[in-house]
Structures are given as structure tokens and as C-alpha cells.
Design a protein around this nucleic acid. Structure first.
Length: 419
RNA sequence: GUGGCCGUAGCUCAGUUGGUUAGAGCGCCUGGUUGUGGUCCAGGAGGUCGGGGGUUCGAAUCCCCUCGGUCACCCCA
């Protein structure tokens, strides 16, 4: 494998055809759905002041150990974004657009994780955020947007889990109850869970270790500690989802790893993915984040979907297949003049997908490449044609007839042959 | 970050208990007479056996380190 001196850094890869165009189509699909719902695109910088991301929660791994941070030549402490939400909130605080502010985005994020299937250090996300309204119908609408997107992509086995984390004011009482419960059952917990219990007890609920399952199953749930308004809002969300026909299950122990979440929280899991990284998307409310970034105390909600994982899930279900769109016309030219390059240029100017071989290869070699290219038509120009002012039009797909056409009428002929 | 498995041509892999010029298929290139592809035939190019060190008369084959991949935990998209 050590043919070249360099290779992509761990957790990164080159996206090439047909994957690259599949990603492009997926993003285009999302853009279409989002814009139909009134969202405008935001393209924030890929790096920000490290403080922007620290606000995400210093006890979260994403901030504590996965940040790609660095100091630039001006002495600024910066970091590659680990997600978009913080940038969107920062942008809102900076520019104060009209409310509610609805934006969608796509692009890479960076996390210094150990690579694994469906987990990369540079990974692509699409997502949408709304700042400036706490209307629970918005929660419903956002979830429905993500759901519609998955449906458009053709994913069938997506399970939607919904929970409410309540307001920040609801937390202390619950944390007390949870903490007491966990401590009294500490002996039954795994060593790692006992450790996270001290720093962030909520996250113990997320443990996938089998030995923790029993304790977690009996743990007190946040839904029982919700304030009146948070409880009402959550009911409104679930009622809305039912009304829209979006299937979901209430998952009282769904917590998610970013600390900023409040109230509605949700996650999409691809059941078709047997891998551990089966969360294809997730999101929730973050009613304190904008303020934490120096903006007004506006509420926000959003979600992000993993492009790579979504595609992985599509593979598992054989949906949204990669498409290869071959060239239409292949120009074969063995003359010494510029007839070949002129013809290719004319075809392209005319909007026809055309290509040719280089390096003065033999006609046989060029025909071989033409065939391999998937083109349906070969335009052949040898010395005979050059002399006669014609081009031989040869069909490559079905049997392959061939006829000489006057040079001036080639474009017309090609157009009539293409679908 | 912790642990398991893995690392031979562009790709998929074979390489017997360590033994002398490292193989196959696919792909690629060039030919198969007089300019024409998809089948077939014949040639050919391409490998510091991930990298480094060690053991040995001798290592792709054994040991150590390292890099990378992969899977699980963790985390989350």
C-alpha cells in the first residue's frame, strides 16, 4: 500500500465517482426539501473562534477531546467546526436577521475521533435550524422535514425516537433523583458508567454496555420531571407528529451528547445498518445556546443528518443507487490536423456530452476506449473522412451501423440520434 | 482514548513446516497484415510482500516497534 509517499489522513477519504455525484444528488434533494419549506442556505466558515464551540458544552466529548483546534499566525485560537449549530447561532447573534430565522446547510464537519464504519474525522452533514420561535409546531415541522427527506431518498428502515429533556429549570430535581438512583445502584453498573456518572449522569442513560441495561431500564425518567409548559409543549409535538403521519416512539432515555439540548430531542436510527454507528441524524431544541454565544435570548431548534451514514443505510436497503451517467459521444480521430479537437469543442458548445482520446492512439485503441466510455455514438474521422469532408457516425450500442455524414451536418445528426 | 482482527501488483486474492528469479484472475498497454470497439488469441508493463528494527546461512512467512485499515467500547452524524 505504500506506493505513494502520501495518503489521506486517518478518517478522511477521497470521494470520487460515482460516490461524489451520489453525495451531490443527496444534498440537492435536501436543499430542495428545505427551500420548499422556507429555509435559506447558510454557508458559514469551516473554522471559528474555539470559544464558539466550547459553548456547546465542555463536558461533551465533542468539545473536550474531539476538537480540531489550532492557533493561526495571528495568534487566534480557532477550531474546525465539529458541527453547524454553533456556527448558525453565532451567525445569528452577529447579524440579527429577521425572526424566525430558518436556514439549511450542507458541508463537512470535523471531529478527532477514532475512525470506524460510518464515523470519519471529516464527515458530511446536511441540516436545518430555526432560531426565534419556541412554537412546538416548529419542532414537529422540522422533524417532518427530515422525515420527508429520508422518504425521498427511499430509506424505509428509519426509526424516529423522540424525547423531551425539559427546560434547564427542570434539570436539577431530575439530576438529583437520577444521581441518587445511580449511586444506589453503582455496584451493578459498569466501571465506565460509574465514571461518567460523576461528570454527566444523564449520559449514563446512553450506555450500550449490556451490564448497564438493567439499571438504566429502571432509572427515573426526565418526562416525569417536566414543568407544566414543557409537558404541554411535548404533547403538542407528539400530537403533531401523529397528525402528520410521522411514525415515532417516545424514548424517555434518549439523551444525546451535546449539552445544549432542551425540551424536544430526537434521533433517527437506520435499522438497516447493523453497525454501531446507526444514528443517521438527530437534533433538538437549544433554547439557551444563542444567548450563551452573546446573542439575545432567542430559542432555537435544529437537526443534522449524516450524509455518509445515510448513504451507508441506503446501501443496506439498496435504495438511492449510485448513478453513472456516461458520455454521449466519443470522437475518434486519427488525422494529423485539428479536426478532432474542433469536433469535440463543437459538440460541447452545442450542449452534447462529448469526449475523446489523447496521445494519438491507434484507431483500434481509440475505439476500445470509446466502447468502454459507455458512449452510444462514435464519431470517426480518419484520413478518408478528412479528405471527403465527412464524419463517420457509428452507433456503438446496438449492433452498430455506420454512415458517413457531411461535416456541416454532424451536430444535427447527433442531436437526432440522442434521446 | 481502550481492546480484537487485518495489511502481498490498480482491484480481488494465492503463496506449502522460513529456502534460492513472489504468483493467479480481473483491469491496463501493444499486437493478431490492408483505418473500427464489445468475443477470442498472443505478448507486455506493473510489487522496496505497509514501514523500520531484530532472529537466522536464508523471511512475504518468526519476534518487537511503528504506520494504516477494520470492528467493538466510547462518542455521535
Amino acid at each position: 500500500m505504500a506506493r505513494s509517499d502520501f495518503q489521506t489522513p486517518p478518517g478522511t477519504r477521497d470521494l470520487t465517482e460515482p460516490t461524489s455525484s451520489r453525495v451531490r444528488r443527496l444534498v440537492a434533494l435536501f436543499a430542495e426539501e428545505a427551500e420548499r419549506a422556507g429555509f435559506g442556505q447558510i454557508v458559514p466558515p469551516m473554522f471559528e473562534d474555539v470559544g464558539v464551540f466550547v459553548r456547546l458544552g465542555e463536558s461533551s466529548d465533542v468539545v473536550a477531546k474531539e476538537l480540531y483546534s489550532f492557533t493561526d499566525k495571528g495568534g487566534r485560537d480557532l477550531a474546525l467546526r465539529p458541527e453547524f449549530t454553533a456556527s448558525v447561532c453565532r451567525s445569528f447573534a452577529q447579524t440579527r436577521p429577521l425572526l424566525p430565522w430558518k436556514t439549511w446547510y450542507s458541508g463537512p464537519s470535523f471531529r478527532y475521533d477514532k475512525p470506524q464504519k460510518g464515523r470519519y474525522r471529516q464527515f458530511d452533514q446536511v441540516g436545518a435550524e430555526v432560531i426565534g420561535s419556541d412554537d412546538p409546531d416548529l419542532d414537529t415541522e422540522l422533524i417532518a422535514l427530515a422525515w420527508r427527506f429520508f422518504a425521498k431518498v427511499g430509506l424505509r428502515d428509519v426509526a424516529l425516537s423522540v424525547n423531551s429533556l425539559g427546560d434547564f429549570a427542570d434539570r436539577p430535581a431530575y439530576l438529583d433523583a437520577l444521581g441518587a438512583y445511580l449511586r444506589s445502584n453503582a455496584d451493578a453498573l459498569s466501571e465506565q458508567s460509574r465514571a461518567t456518572m460523576a461528570t454527566n449522569p444523564l449520559r449514563v442513560l446512553d450506555s450500550k454496555r449490556p451490564q448497564d441495561a438493567a439499571v438504566i431500564a429502571e432509572a427515573p425518567i426526565l418526562l416525569d420531571f417536566l414543568s407544566e409548559s414543557a409537558a404541554v409543549a411535548f404533547e403538542r409535538v407528539t400530537a403533531g407528529l401523529k397528525a402528520l403521519g410521522v411514525p415515532f416512539q417516545v424514548a424517555p432515555r434518549l439523551v444525546r451528547g451535546l449539552d445544549y439540548y432542551t425540551r424536544t430531542t430526537f434521533e433517527f436510527a437506520a435499522s438497516g445498518l447493523d453497525a454501531a454507528q446507526n444514528a443517521v441524524g438527530g437534533g433538538g431544541r437549544y433554547d439557551g445556546l444563542v444567548e450563551a454565544l452573546g446573542g439575545p435570548p432567542e430559542p432555537g431548534i435544529g437537526f443534522a443528518l449524516g450524509v455518509d451514514r445515510t448513504l451507508l443505510a441506503c446501501d443496506a436497503e439498496a435504495s438511492f443507487p449510485a448513478e453513472r451517467r456516461p458520455i454521449d459521444v466519443w470522437v475518434v480521430s486519427t488525422t494529423a490536423g485539428t479536426e478532432g479537437i474542433e469536433l469535440v469543442e463543437a459538440l460541447r458548445n452545442d450542449g452534447i456530452r462529448a469526449d475523446r482520446a489523447y496521445g494519438g492512439r491507434s484507431m483500434k485503441a481509440q475505439m476500445k476506449v470509446a466502447d468502454r466510455s459507455g458512449a452510444s455514438i462514435a464519431l470517426i474521422m480518419g484520413e478518408d473522412e478528412a479528405a471527403a469532408g465527412t464524419v463517420a457516425v457509428r452507433m456503438l450500442r446496438d449492433g452498430g451501423g455506420q454512415e458517413p455524414i457531411d461535416r456541416s451536418r454532424v451536430l444535427e445528426k447527433v442531436r437526432s440520434l440522442l434521446p
